[in-house]
Simulated assay, not measured.
Amino acid sequence: MTIAVPERNTGTGPERTTEIRRRELAAFLRSRRERITPEQVGLPRGPRRRTPGLRREEVAQLSAVGVTWYTWIEQGRAAHVSAQVLDAVARALLMDPTERAHLFALAGTHDPRSGPEYPVAAKTALKVVERLAPYPASLQNARYDVLAANRPYAQLFGDPAELPPADRNCLWLLTTSARWKRDFLDRDEMLRDLIAKYRAGMAEHVAEPAWKQQLNRLLEASGEFRELWRRHEVAPMSPHVKRYRHPRVGLIRLEHRNMWLAPQSPAHRVVAYLPADEESEERLERLAELPDERPAG
């Protein structure tokens, strides 16, 4: 079988970016191959070995990949490398989870062996969320899962820690929570906007199981969500003011601000809810003096 070999791209734009990623992938694989000794993978060293680490044909043998195809990958000549090949090569080169994730990221391919996401918030991120009090704040991922929240957030919106892990999601709560439907005066507009943002964000994660599972759960749970999802609307991240009616302190107008903890789009972000006027700030301060409420709703 003849496999077409792509020509080198010396221009700019997406094609140039793809070419750079291929070269980075090739260099990364060479570096990993050269650090593995034959003894580590059960191969004899032999008296005439000159190559540091493993030979290309040995990696191909260990991963059950054709020697020519593996050579092209290491030379940056492979147009697309499948997840199966990447998985086999990662195993052959004894990659740890961080190296494996980097390998798949360079190849632009989703890792089928990545398990469900159980995010652990960094202590520094948790400290930022806590220090924003008396302003409500939460730590969220790209899917709008609430990973952590401070006390003002719990008082105003309900404590996420009291909910099942799968329910600690802004889309899920806007769709199903009686409390959020009652207290969020702009709830219908918020839901449309959040679904549009979620669709825009999902374009980069459409093959990831966690995103698929979450979307299917929302589609099954809500006819309203299904109707809005079928509109195919997209929207960017942007600051906006929303109104909340707390049963004990009254109307609070808050502006949402996102603070990204890393430049990559899947990174966690701190979402701060800042008072849009003096009256709202005063009511947040009053809320901070109240005892905690339960249940979360």
Rank of each mutant, 00 (worst) to 15 (best):
P291T: 02
E162R: 11
Y244A: 06
T37M: 12
Y144L: 07
R243D: 03
S82M: 11
D96S: 05
V120K: 15
P47M: 11
A276C: 11
R253S: 11
V234G: 10
L287R: 06
P119D: 10
D277A: 11
Y244C: 07
H102F: 08
R35F: 09
E293K: 03
H246W: 04
M202L: 15
Q155I: 01
Y135H: 11
L174Q: 08
P119R: 12
H246C: 00
Y144N: 05
A221T: 07
D87R: 09
L62C: 09
S265V: 06
A296T: 06
A203K: 08
E289W: 11
I195T: 01
F157D: 03
R151D: 05
L156S: 08
R143S: 04
Y198N: 03
S265M: 12
A200Y: 10
M1G: 12
R91G: 03
K181P: 02
R30W: 13
E204F: 13
L93F: 05
N216H: 12
K181E: 03
N150D: 05
S114N: 04
L171C: 14
G297D: 09
Q213N: 14
R56Q: 11
Y70I: 00
S63Y: 01
Q75F: 07
L103Y: 09
V271K: 12
P239V: 12
V67S: 10
R248Q: 15
P160L: 00
K123T: 11
R113K: 11
R179I: 09
P209W: 01
E117F: 02
L194H: 13
P38Q: 06
K242F: 14
G115M: 10
E281A: 13
P291H: 04
E278Q: 13
L194K: 14
G11Q: 09
D193T: 08
L171Q: 04
A235Q: 02
H102R: 10
H102S: 12
R226M: 04
A105G: 05
P239H: 12
G297L: 13
P116G: 11
P275G: 00
L171M: 13
Y135S: 13
R192F: 10
L219I: 08
R32C: 04
A154I: 01
E281K: 11
A272K: 03
P247C: 10
F28S: 03
D145C: 08
P152A: 04
F28G: 02
A83I: 00
L62P: 02
T98C: 07
A196N: 09
A83H: 02
V67H: 08
N9E: 13
L62Q: 05
E282V: 08
R77F: 05
E58H: 09
R192C: 06
D96V: 05
L93I: 04
A92H: 01
P266C: 03
R243T: 02
Y244T: 03
I73D: 01
P134H: 15
A267S: 14
V129T: 02
L174V: 05
A262S: 07
A83F: 05
A101M: 00
R151H: 06
H246F: 03
L174I: 07
L171V: 03
A166L: 14
F104A: 04
P47N: 13
K123C: 04
L147P: 01
E204W: 14
G297S: 07
